[in-house]
C-alpha cells in the first residue's frame, strides 16, 4: 500500500441535505449555479449547473481564488439527458441536431463552463471510471495535488437519467459533491485525508441511498467531514479499493 496525505480546505454538496449524508428527496430542482453569467445559466445543461454549483460552494469555503485551482471533474455518465437527446435525434433526423446540445454532450462540458466562468487557465480534466468514478476521481485529484504541490478542485457529480439510456444505466437522482484538496501545510485544512490503495475487490455497496448515482460514494466523505472524521473504503476500480482515513483538527 502507498499512502497519500492531503488536506481538505472546502466542500460543496447538492442537494444541500446530502452534505450530512442524507437521502436526497427526489427532484431537488435546478441548482442555482449563480457563478455562471445569466445567459450561460439559462443555456447550460443540468450536468453543468450541478457541477458548477457544488464547485462554487467548495471554492468559496476554501477562500482560494477559483482561477488558482487545477480541477478534476469526475462523472460516471456525463449528461445522460443530453446523450438521450443526441441518440434520439440521430435516430430520427440527424440533420436537425442542435450544435449547442452537441457541444454540451462532451464529457468536459462542466470543466469547460467552469474554467470559462472563473477565468481559470490552470489544467482541467474530465474523468470517469464507471461505478468507481468518485474514488478514481479522488485518487486522480489527490495525486495531482501532491505531485504538483498545488491545490485542486475535485467535483464528483452525476445527473438523473431519462429515456432509454437513463433506464439502462439506472441513475435516478442528481447528486454532486465537491472538495478543495491541497498538499498539507497551508494552515487552511478543515480535515486531513490519508489515502491508500489496496488490490482487493471493494466491499459491495450497501443499500443505495441515492438511487443508482455513482457519485453517491463521495457522500461518504461528506458524512465523515460533517461528522467526527473516521474511515471509509471507496471503490477506485473493479478490483481496487481506496482506503480513506479522515482526521479533523481538535
Amino acid at each position: 500500500m502507498s499512502a497519500l496525505r492531503v488536506d481538505i480546505e472546502g466542500f460543496g454538496a447538492w442537494p444541500p441535505e446530502s452534505a450530512e449524508g442524507g437521502v436526497p428527496p427526489g427532484d431537488a430542482g435546478r441548482p442555482a449555479a449563480r457563478l455562471l453569467p445569466p445567459t450561460e445559466r439559462r443555456r447550460a445543461p443540468a450536468s453543468v449547473l450541478l457541477a458548477v454549483e457544488v464547485a462554487a460552494q467548495a471554492v468559496a469555503m476554501s477562500g482560494r481564488p477559483a482561477d488558482s485551482l487545477a480541477c478534476v471533474f469526475a462523472s460516471a455518465y456525463g449528461d445522460i439527458g443530453i446523450t438521450d437527446y443526441l441518440c434520439a435525434t440521430l435516430a430520427q433526423a440527424p440533420d436537425t441536431l442542435s450544435p449547442t446540445r452537441f457541444h454540451h454532450s462532451v464529457h468536459n462540458a462542466p470543466a469547460g463552463y467552469w474554467t470559462i466562468a472563473t477565468g481559470c487557465r490552470a489544467p482541467s480534466s474530465a474523468v470517469c471510471a464507471g461505478g468507481a468514478s468518485a474514488g478514481a476521481g479522488l485518487l486522480e485529484a489527490s495525486v495531482l495535488a501532491l505531485a504538483e504541490q498545488r491545490p485542486v478542485l475535485l467535483v464528483c457529480s452525476d445527473v438523473a437519467g431519462n429515456g432509454p439510456l437513463g433506464e439502462i444505466v439506472g441513475c435516478r437522482s442528481s447528486l454532486g459533491c465537491a472538495l478543495v484538496l491541497a498538499p498539507p501545510g497551508s494552515g487552511r485544512a478543515m480535515a486531513r485525508l490519508d489515502l491508500a490503495l489496496s488490490a482487493a475487490a471493494p466491499p459491495a455497496a450497501g443499500p443505495d441511498p441515492a438511487a443508482g448515482n455513482p457519485s453517491a460514494a463521495a457522500l461518504r466523505l461528506l458524512a465523515l467531514l460533517t461528522g467526527q472524521g473516521g474511515d471509509a473504503i471507496l471503490a477506485a476500480g473493479d478490483r481496487l479499493a481506496l482506503h480513506v482515513h479522515m482526521e479533523k483538527p481538535e
Binding site: G78, S125, A129, L165, R239
Partner: peptide
C-alpha cells in the same frame, strides 16, 4: 449492457482484456 453505454466502456474492456488491476481511469476532455 449498462457498462457499455458509458464513457468508461473502453477502459473497462481493456482492463479486462489485459487483466490489469491497478489504478484505472478514463480521461474524456475531447
Amino acid at each position: 449492457r449498462p457498462r457499455l453505454h458509458q464513457p468508461h466502456s473502453l477502459a473497462g474492456f481493456v482492463a479486462a482484456a489485459l487483466a490489469l488491476r491497478g489504478p484505472c481511469l478514463t480521461v474524456s476532455t475531447a
